[in-house]
């Protein structure tokens, strides 16, 4: 479809206005992360008069931060993979199993969207302790997977349900079994939905502070946000350090997002060809 010129103009005007509303705060973040902490409040929105990279150096050279990065990245990617895999295969079952049972499981799963898991912290701590996972990055993965499954099941079930039954029948005639159908038909077709679910879960997992606080003590098992939280003092904070660390911490999320967005677009165009 070729948009008309006025439509194009409106598009650019609205999106550019929004871009300004987004970029100004990001600008504030970036310029202040390069200022000595004393200058931040003097003029928070101007370019730094004296540039410092102390914050970035601190995050870079402080050996612990590289641990934190590695841990956060590991936890996030493994959790996301498991959420997508377990969630999509369960959603496939719920969407296409002709029986009364999956409907109940569906409600059972999405009930998890409605109650903060913080409430169950003490019981969760005991489970994790009994499994011997305490104080390791592995303690967080099952918790995040469990937290991510409700949204995965909720979104993916709807998408899989919308896939036409003829596709499945055709594949069956070709002799594919259910797992084969799942891999060869379901997964490629729901790629946009998978990316959406990944992005929905990416940020809460990456930025979670509560469970690392409870489960992790050892330095080399800490997550990035747990590390950053220790930069916030009781009555004083080194904002140069904090802003730099937070700016860096947004980079992996952005990279992961771009990767998912690519999949998302691929899935869209693939779907459009078929449609």
């Amino acid at each position: 479809m070729k948009p008309s010129l006025p439509y194009k103009i409106v598009t650019y005007v609205v999106l550019t206005l929004w871009a300004l509303i987004v970029i100004f705060p990001l600008w504030t973040l970036m310029v202040n992360s390069f200022k000595p902490k004393r200058d931040i409040f003097k003029d928070p929105f101007s370019l730094p008069t004296e540039v410092t990279v102390d914050g970035y150096l601190n995050a870079w050279t402080d050996s612990n931060f590289s641990f934190y990065f590695r841990n956060s990245f590991f936890i996030t990617t493994v959790s996301l993979f498991l959420i997508l895999f377990l969630g999509s295969i369960a959603a496939y079952s719920i969407a296409k199993w002709r029986s009364k049972i999956p409907g109940l499981f569906y409600i059972y799963f999405i009930a998890g969207l409605m109650i903060p898991l913080r409430l169950g912290t003490i019981n969760l701590l005991q489970t994790i302790k009994a499994m011997g996972l305490l104080d390791t990055v592995f303690s967080l993965i099952p918790v995040y997977v469990a937290m991510g499954l409700p949204i995965a099941v909720f979104v993916l079930t709807d998408f899989i349900r919308a896939l036409p039954d003829e596709l499945f029948e055709a594949a069956k005639i070709d002799g594919a079994n259910r797992f084969g159908i799942y891999l060869k038909i379901v997964i490629p077709l729901i790629r946009p939905a998978l990316s959406t679910v990944a992005i929905f879960n990416l940020i809460p997992i990456w930025n979670d502070l509560w469970f690392p606080l409870i489960f992790i003590r050892t330095e080399d098992q800490r997550t990035l946000i747990l590390g950053i939280s220790l930069l916030f003092g009781q009555y004083q904070s080194n904002w140069t350090y904090i802003l730099s660390a937070l700016a860096i911490s947004a980079v992996p999320v952005l990279v992961l997002y771009l990767a998912f967005a690519k999949q998302f677009i691929k899935g869209l165009t693939a779907g459009a060809v078929k449609g």
Partner: peptide
């Protein structure tokens, strides 16, 4: 091994009850 102040009471309480 300090905890950030807003969460200290809650974290300590949880760790005491959880034995950690």
């Amino acid at each position: 091994d300090p905890t950030n102040p807003p969460e200290y009471n809650a974290v300590l309480r949880t760790q005491l009850e959880g034995g950690t």
